[in-house]
Write a protein that binds this DNA or RNA. Structure first.
Lengths: 234, 234
DNA sequence: GATGTTTCTATGTCTAGGCTTAATGAAACT
DNA sequence: AGTTTCATTAAGCCTAGACATAGAAACATC
């Protein structure tokens, strides 16, 4: 389809190999020539072939094992990367004006489910925040967040009316590890009220927890406006 | 936390750099020392440092530009990779017995929305399939799929009662490009009937379209059993 | 036949060095 | 002041060669 030559050799080789797989010159399960051989046929160093094949292995198109060689994956488990944009940027990119409102902010003991998610003892006192994000004044996302002041020192001093909690955290506390769970839920009374919709409407829910070396930083449940969808690319 | 030395140097360097970022020795927006300098301080070749920093750039933790140097990303756009498992494997991994039922299979002209999604002319004749996947006899996923016999030759000859359409396609037609969209929908009458739930229940919906060099292969809408959730990792 | 041992090989990883290229700041020129 | 030119520099990418190591296959032993 689009065969413009790629700038660098590794990518050129990767896409040639990809083509051979898609065109079924190399079938699922087949063993493909080894790095040294490909290096000769493509006229490059072995390291370059290695880089290209690694890329394809990361994509899940190839299976590589020492001594056993490189095979075309039989059942490619399809992997996709999705980018969770910062709400404000997302709204502004859509040409709308961003605003947010903090509905509630208090220190309180965490319920059991959040404790489990954050790997903290039940009843630990965290900051609990409810925020709604708007685009041109219309509700777009409802956020229910717990922040751990141990892992995010200084959180008590922040005025979240000025900067939204997500942005403050993201800018100040990079994380090492994170969970992310997508699901669908029927809007309960509160979701419906905050998002300006009817109770029972299907909402896309994203539940996320992040950790750094001091423990769980934050756990948040994001409820998106009905109709919102999340796009992933391979 | 867990400081066991990593087997290879590139990864060891990557995690040391990651640590410095998380511990805020290198703050968001800071420029970090250049590859040559790090190569000296870590006592490795520049290529090794390059590999490590590339990994972190792929993770979205670093921004790298020629001449400008390497900076700690200011607003790390959160990237997550999710693996869409093959339904059967997923069900079997949960210790249940997999089965599927083809509800309908016919050749018919595609409606406008599918045509747009697949970049095909409206009214083109494709194979239309409805399938339900079961775990221990309970409905787990409802699938509504269109297959393009031009991009997937041989599809007319397949008996999808024996092998499910997804597995057949995945095993026979690797793709070059794909779309993936997640959303939430209230179950309509058909969804409710197929998944054995009540109309209006929130369902997680995954809409996926794939292409090879002959055009769109297939476009599918998967409706998951209520309560199903999708887990992504960074 | 089942189980350990050895050999061999394709990939994994690294090094030292070279060339390429894009961004940038400064100098030269409107 | 604004614009163009240009050298500089840090990352991008490649190479040739080396050693390490998993693991398949052949072999030997029980």
């Amino acid at each position: 389809m689009n065969d413009r030559p790629l700038a660098n050799k590794a990518q050129a080789i990767a896409s040639e190999v990809r083509r051979r797989i898609v065109d079924r010159e190399w079938r699922q399960g087949d063993r493909i020539p080894d790095e040294a051989e490909l290096a000769v046929t493509f006229g490059v160093a072995r390291a370059t072939v290695n880089k290209a094949l690694q890329m394809l292995a990361d994509e899940g198109l190839l299976d590589r094992k020492r001594r056993a060689g490189t095979h075309v994956t039989v059942n490619p488990a399809r992997r996709a990367t999705l980018t969770i944009p910062i709400v404000r940027e997302q709204i502004e990119q859509a040409g709308m004006t961003y605003s947010h409102r903090v509905i509630a902010q208090r220190r309180s003991p965490i319920p059991a489910d959040i404790a489990a998610r954050m790997e903290l003892p039940e009843g630990a006192e965290l900051i609990h925040l409810r925020t709604v994000h708007y685009g041109d004044g219309n509700p777009f996302q409802a956020e229910d967040r717990w922040i751990n002041p141990v892992a995010a020192p200084g959180v008590d001093l922040i005025d979240f009316h000025r900067i939204n909690p997500n942005e403050w955290l993201v800018r100040n506390f990079p994380w090492l590890r994170g969970d992310m769970v997508f699901s669908a839920e029927n809007a309960d009374a509160r979701d419906a009220r905050l998002l300006g919709t009817r109770q029972g409407t299907a909402l896309l829910i994203l539940q996320r927890t992040t950790w750094n070396d001091l423990g769980a930083i934050t756990s948040v449940r994001l409820a998106f406006h009905p109709g919102y969808c999340l796009i992933a690319s391979p």
